[in-house]
Computed example of a mutant assay.
Amino acid sequence: MLARKYDNYAWQEQPAEQYEAPQPVRRRRRKPDKMKLIRSGLFKILAVVMVAYFAMVLRSEAMVQCSNELVSLQKQEAQLINQNNELRIEVEQLKGPERIIGLAEQRLGMSVARSNIYVKAGEAAKSSNSLAAK
């Protein structure tokens, strides 16, 4: 009988204690604070602007240095061109026939024989000196 009672006990519907497993507590996602989002966006934009500004400053500094170097090189070029022109004039004066004749007369006591001088005519006169000795 005891077994029978137990058997009936198992088959009888009794209100069972409903055991509910505790559900994990779901945390609500907090909506991000709008001011925080705005601040972080502004910070990012400000950082990009500052990096671009510093890049432009460095680039402009490099350009100023290059332009100063260019100006100094142009001044040096002008000085060298003037010096070159002066040296060309001096070379032309030194290799002129009047100078050579003057040196020959003063230092060596030589004189130009006027009877041996002749003048070239035509194309030869334009390309070389007009005085030549036989």
Rank of each mutant, 00 (worst) to 15 (best):
K5D: 03
K5W: 04
D7G: 10
D7L: 13
A10F: 05
W11Q: 14
W11S: 14
Q12I: 11
Q14M: 01
E17G: 02
Q18L: 10
Y19K: 09
E20N: 14
E20G: 06
E20F: 12
P24K: 02
P24Y: 04
P24H: 04
R26S: 09
R28Y: 06
R28T: 14
R28V: 13
R30Q: 15
P32T: 03
P32E: 06
D33A: 03
K34L: 11
K34N: 02
K34G: 04
K36R: 14
L37N: 02
I38V: 03
I38S: 00
R39G: 01
S40W: 02
G41D: 14
G41F: 12
F43D: 06
K44G: 11
I45H: 07
L46P: 00
A47V: 07
V48T: 12
V49D: 03
M50Y: 13
M50N: 12
V51A: 01
V51L: 09
Y53A: 02
S60P: 04
A62G: 09
M63N: 11
V64W: 09
S67H: 10
N68E: 12
E69Q: 11
L70D: 01
L70R: 05
S72E: 14
S72Q: 15
E77T: 08
Q79R: 06
L80V: 09
L80T: 02
N82D: 13
N82M: 06
Q83W: 00
N84I: 03
E86R: 05
E86K: 02
L87Y: 05
R88T: 13
R88K: 14
I89R: 10
I89T: 14
E90R: 01
E90H: 08
V91R: 15
V91S: 12
L94S: 07
K95V: 10
K95C: 15
G96H: 06
G96I: 08
P97N: 09
E98K: 05
E98D: 10
R99M: 09
I101G: 00
G102T: 10
L103G: 00
A104V: 05
A104H: 01
E105H: 04
S111N: 12
S111L: 13
V112D: 04
A113V: 04
A113F: 00
A113M: 10
A113N: 13
S115E: 12
Y118E: 04
Y118G: 03
K120I: 05
K120H: 04
A121M: 14
G122L: 00
G122C: 00
A124H: 04
K126M: 03
S127V: 14
N129F: 04
N129V: 03
S130Y: 08
L131N: 14
A132F: 07
A132E: 05
A132L: 06
A133F: 15
